[in-house]
Nucleic acid binder design. Structure first.
Length: 960
DNA sequence: TGCAATGCATA
DNA sequence: GTATGCATTGCAA
């Protein structure tokens, strides 16, 4: 019924708080020093609701004097609320004045909360045939929802959710909104200090509601519960019922809904303007006047007209502001580009006398969109005459497998660029990209971009191969300074003193209301996209010089840029996942986790959240007092980290159970349950994203999902690897990994002949080390000796200390020190090499890998021993880890090339630091085994041979 | 909602 | 002791 009268009831404090905190980082202070954030925030929300909904009836409800009844029931009710912030207390009188001037009724009742007032009024209005909307972000109100009463819930980033019965049912997993009370009662609410049932959180509460329907139902049927949970609930029945009462919104407050009073009529505009002016609200005054004068249609119509004519004016005379008398073909064609052109700023707006960063507003530029048809044809012709062009694709999302092209920006001259918008229709878009194919596939035009891997992947989906020389500014900067971040905004600010238009300005913050680039007006798209291309081009000029200075140029041309194409192919390829297998694994884990949970609760004597280190610490060390002097973390919590607990595990079953629980829970949530959700719908495979510029040592990293940390150490964990399977029955997985590559590198670099010989003779390096440091024949080395030697071998790579070593072994600090000393005596050159690295870093401020990849260590001369120590360990580790990364990158590039040249069906799928995984087409197996092994082992020549182990199998576990 | 702290998976 | 990414909890904004 569209003619049903609508009443809006506004939860004042909730909106005031929300508004206040929205400005918390940047509070609104007027010239009198008053903090007006809360008023501003609240008025914005109120006007927004009025403008959107044009309610017939509206009232604003406040709390007064807290809830006497609730405090009587439970003296700690809301006791942990902080005092109302100053900025909010001072706002209240102003808000009341404004509401009065707006002729909006203020509903309060001493001794009741706004919830109760709203609850009561909404029920009364419903009886009189109204549709009621409760304007509040507070989920507790869900209990009041009926067929005619709705929640009108503001969401972050703008807009509202309307919760009716179906939404509440879904959200809380209840049948009736009234069960929300039971839900809140069970789970409790820390902000209102409603205790709830101990040990019951959101998940358990939902389970109980489904099972028993209500708090009373639960309490009457505790015989159906088992173990500790049963005791716990039985013992706390009273508390449960009390919590439920506290959570219940009252419906019998002595207030009356009087339709006449609640009518939203014409406000005293002058009075409101006066108050706003006093508070120094300019925008809000305009907003208010627009909302309440001529009506919405007229207002928005007017503003549209204005903005259109404005932009017309600007685009009509683009050349007047164009930065340079652009050379060549470009200039002559402007008149043909019938599309919109981004506005150009006039320099007159007194640009920075300060050091303020330049922006699009303060810089002269010529950015233009190119219209379809003849203009585009001419544009492409011009494009093909260039020798180096920067381009940047704009798409509908971040996932290149699903993202559609919205436009492509081009720039080949600083301050100038063009934008080709793409139609939404797939066929038309494909037709348009075909006209650009000659450019992208031209071998002799250099392509410049920021994070080209992304653009290349997007274009690959349109069957476009990007050929020719590449210059990726992100990669360039990664080599110039690997420790910094490399996103374009930061680079522009650092190197060009320029702040680009932010993406959030265009499409909003991420979340519900984020727009797609497609929804952005063409003019804005053009500005944003061309600016990116322009800036990237300018950054290239900057970085090109810096690259030339060291081996960095070679690293860039021979390693990182070629690798970018390899990674793009691997990511597009993805890997096949056996989802059914993971699902069954998940069920097994579930059962085992439940068993452990039960056993832990029994030992603890109560239920708690095992996943919370905080709660666990209290149970273990305060309640059970398992240790005299528990170790604390730096924040003062009890440490429940693995190494601490495993030390205690043999004495206390509960600790072993906790460790097992953690292991299984981690396994389930991070791998078994998460991986199937990462399968890409369009390909049916899992596509990780390799980050080429995050690891300061030169390694790759993998995310969404991370396929470089799939478990292998524990029996249970490694089962996950069974889920990674070949493409189909014609394929098999092959894993090839470098054996001991880091130790081989350190042996070679240090020229430690003893160790080099051991590698040359193909000895078990850890046993060999043990035999030497413990002075026993290699055949007589014990398991423990080998294990300790292994730990030291690895420790060396990381920069050992006696402390660290004794922590990792069963050796005492003294024994550890002795072992390290003997180790250095055995391998004196190794020791010398390490010192030399540190000295080099001290003198030069950096260390480098075999290929000259640098890592700068600014703390190497720090007076702080801890900080300096860390830098010294980096000085030792970075060349080792980084050289290994260099070597496998070379191997990847060469193998990729061989696979392409030979037109093999087999594909390289994954890289895990020292391992490569392939989908091998069975008929190609023998040939490729040779190629892969050869390429990996000969990727880089060291004095120590590189050794690669390979295996094949029906899944990644078997292949390893 | 977003962030810090904690813990844990890999090489 | 090196290098990462991510799930969860609990609190702040």
């Amino acid at each position: 019924m569209s003619d049903q009268k609508r009443l809006f009831l506004v939860d004042a404090y909730a909106l005031i708080f929300r508004g206040y905190y929205a400005f918390i980082k940047n509070p609104r202070i007027n010239s009198k020093g008053e903090d007006t954030s809360a008023i501003m925030g609240f008025m914005n929300s109120l006007l927004d609701v009025i403008k959107r909904e044009r309610p017939d009836h509206l009232a604003v409800c406040f709390d007064k004097g807290g809830s006497a009844d609730r405090v009587e029931m439970y003296e700690e009710y809301k006791a942990n609320r902080d005092e109302t912030p100053e900025g909010i207390r001072t706002a209240i009188p102003h808000i009341c004045n404004i509401l009065e001037a707006m002729h909006i009724p203020i509903m309060v009742k001493e001794g009741y909360e706004a919830d109760d007032v709203i609850g009561t009024l909404s029920r009364q209005a419903e009886k009189e045939g109204y549709k009621v909307f409760m304007v509040t972000p507070d989920k507790d109100f869900a209990q009041l929802v009926t067929e005619n009463i709705f929640m009108y819930k503001p969401v972050f980033g703008g807009g509202y959710d309307i919760w009716g019965i179906p939404e509440v049912q879904k959200k809380f997993e209840v049948e009736s909104p009234l069960q929300v009370i039971d839900f809140l009662g069970m789970m409790g609410d820390s902000s209102d200090n409603i205790p709830g049932l101990p040990g019951v959180g959101e998940k358990t509460a939902k389970k109980f509601i489904t099972q028993f329907g209500s708090m009373e139902g639960l309490l009457a049927n505790t015989d159906q519960l088992k173990g500790k949970m049963k005791e716990k609930v039985e013992a706390n029945g009273e508390l449960g019922l009390l919590s439920k009462k506290l959570a219940t919104i009252m419906l019998d407050v002595p207030v009356t809904f009087n339709a006449k009073d609640f009518e939203l009529d014409h406000p005293d505009v002058e009075k409101v303007k006066e108050i706003f002016q006093e508070l120094e609200f300019r925008r809000l005054t305009d907003n208010f006047v627009k909302t309440f004068t001529s009506g919405a249609e007229a207002t928005s119509g007017l503003s549209n007209g204005t903005s259109t004519s404005l932009s017309d004016q600007k685009s009509s005379s683009p050349n007047s502001n164009s930065s340079s008398n652009s050379s060549s073909a470009g200039a002559g064609q402007f008149s043909l580009f019938g599309g919109t052109s981004a506005p150009l700023s006039d320099q007159d707006s007194e640009t920075s006398s300060t050091n303020a960063r330049q922006t699009i507003e303060t810089t002269s530029h010529f950015y233009q969109s190119v219209a379809p048809g003849m203009a585009t044809t001419l544009f492409v012709k011009n494009l093909l005459n260039q020798s180096s062009v920067c381009f940047d694709t704009e798409t509908t999302g971040l996932n290149p497998l699903t993202a559609e092209l919205v436009g492509i920006a081009f720039s080949w001259e600083a301050g100038k660029g063009f934008y080709i918008p793409f139609p939404e229709d797939k066929n038309e878009a494909q037709a348009l990209i075909e006209t650009l194919r000659p450019f992208f596939e031209n071998e002799s035009i250099e392509k410049v971009g920021q994070n080209l891997k992304y653009d290349i992947k997007v274009l690959a989906k349109y069957n476009i191969k990007v050929k020719g020389k590449l210059f990726d500014t992100m990669l360039a900067h990664y080599l110039i300074n690997p420790d910094m971040r490399h996103n374009m905004d930061v680079l522009a600010e650092t190197y060009l003193n320029y702040t680009p238009v932010s993406i959030t300005e265009l499409i909003g913050k991420k979340g519900k209301n984020q727009l797609s680039m497609r929804d952005v007006p063409l003019e804005k798209q053009t500005e944003y996209a061309v600016e990116d291309a322009d800036i990237t081009l300018q950054l290239k000029e900057h970085f090109q010089k810096e690259l030339g200075e060291a081996d960095t140029q070679k690293l860039f041309d021979d390693i990182e840029v070629p690798l970018l194409r390899v990674l793009a192919d691997m990511e597009l390829e993805g890997i096949n996942l056996d989802e059914e297998f993971l699902n069954s694994l998940s069920e097994d884990l579930n059962n085992d986790i439940a068993d452990l949970e039960k056993s832990i609760y029994e030992a603890a004597g109560e239920e708690f959240n095992i996943g919370s280190p905080k709660q666990l610490g209290v149970i273990l060390f305060e309640k059970l007092k398992l240790v005299d002097k528990p170790k604390k973390t730096k924040t003062g919590q009890y440490s429940t980290a693995e190494d601490v607990l495993s030390y205690l595990a043999k004495d206390h079953k509960i600790i072993q159970d906790v460790l097992d629980y953690r292991g299984l829970a981690k396994l389930k949530s991070t791998y078994v349950d998460a991986l199937p959700t990462q399968v890409e719908e369009s390909t049916g495979r899992v596509h990780t994203d390799y980050m080429q510029t995050v690891a300061a040592t030169g390694r790759l990293s993998s995310n969404n999902p991370n396929l470089q940390n799939i478990p292998i150490r524990t029996e249970r964990g490694r089962q996950v690897r069974k889920a990674f399977i070949p493409r189909d029955e014609n394929y098999t997985l092959l894993a090839a990994d470098y054996s001991q590559i880091e130790l081989r590198i350190i042996a070679a670099l240090s020229k430690e002949t003893t160790m080099i010989e051991a590698f040359k003779n193909g000895e078990d390096i850890h046993a060999s080390t043990a035999s030497k440091v413990f002075n026993v024949p290699i055949k007589e080395v014990t398991r423990e000796q080998r294990s300790n030697a292994k730990t030291v071998n690895f420790g060396i790579i990381y920069g050992v200390s006696a402390f660290g070593l004794s922590n990792q072994t069963n050796l005492s600090r003294g024994e550890a020190k002795e072992l390290i000393d003997t180790y250095y005596e055995t391998y004196p050159k190794l020791k010398a090499y390490m010192s030399a690295q540190v000295d080099f870093a001290r003198d030069n401020g950096y260390v480098s890998t075999v290929l000259g990849r640098r890592r700068y260590l600014k703390d190497i001369n720090s007076r702080n021993a801890v900080v300096r120590g860390a830098a010294e360990r980096n000085a030792v580790n970075a060349p080792i880890q980084g050289s290994a990364a260099d070597i496998i990158k070379i191997a990847m590039i060469n193998i990729h090339q061989k696979l392409n040249e030979g037109n093999y069906k087999s594909k390289m799928l994954l890289q895990v630091h020292d391992e490569l995984v392939f989908d091998i087409y069975k008929p190609e197996l023998e040939t490729l085994k040779t190629i892969i092994k050869t390429e990996m082992e000969s990727a880089y020549k060291l004095e120590v041979p590189l050794d690669v182990e390979m295996d094949i199998g029906l899944n990644w576990l078997e292949a390893h």
